[in-house]
Amino acid sequence: MTGDEQHELTSTLWRWQSAGGTAWWFVSVDGVAADALSATALVRRLESGRRAGFGSVKVAVRIGGSRWQTSAFPMKEEGWSIPVKAAVRKAEALNEGDPVKITIGF
């Protein structure tokens, strides 16, 4: 896993659906991991002088035996969300509402 900082947590797989019917699947990141992501986003913004697209932070993710690179996105309310692609959901036999043990590095 890449990145100097790593966090493990358990979250619930949830689905967001657009008005057009397209569905995206996510896990939420809260607590200490969310605080660390927020701090990382702030430091990177201060270093570069600009905010990443949608305020995102690039992360390396592991769920079970699946590993991939993606971005974490700040949520309006609190915390962060990480998209979980179809290939991972299939490989790890994940369904909406399932608890998911996730490791993130950034």
Rank of each mutant, 00 (worst) to 15 (best):
L37D: 03
L9E: 03
A60F: 10
S71L: 06
G31D: 06
S11V: 06
V29Y: 10
F26K: 05
W80E: 13
F54L: 03
T70P: 14
L42I: 00
A33H: 06
R89S: 07
E8T: 14
V57H: 14
L13N: 08
R67Q: 09
E8K: 15
L9A: 06
L9V: 02
K58D: 00
V27Y: 04
V57A: 14
I82Q: 05
G49S: 06
G53C: 05
G53A: 15
G31W: 09
P74F: 01
V59H: 12
R50W: 06
G21D: 02
A91V: 04
A39G: 09
V59D: 11
G65T: 11
E47D: 15
W68G: 08
A41R: 15
G49C: 06
E47Y: 05
G49H: 08
F54T: 01
A91F: 02
L13D: 10
E78G: 00
A91N: 08
A91D: 11
P83S: 13
F73T: 03
M75G: 07
R89G: 05
A33G: 07
S38R: 13
W25L: 03
K58F: 05
R67W: 00
G31L: 06
K85A: 06
V61F: 02
V61N: 05
G21S: 09
K90N: 14
A91P: 00
A33K: 07
V29C: 09
R44H: 11
Q17R: 14
K90I: 15
G21M: 06
P83Y: 13
E78F: 01
Q6V: 13
S81N: 12
V32K: 14
W80I: 08
T22A: 08
E77N: 12
G53M: 11
D30T: 09
H7Y: 14
L46N: 12
A39R: 14
A86Q: 15
A23L: 04
E47N: 15
A52G: 01
F73D: 00
L13C: 11
A86N: 11
A72M: 11
Q69K: 03
S71Q: 08
A72S: 12
F54V: 02
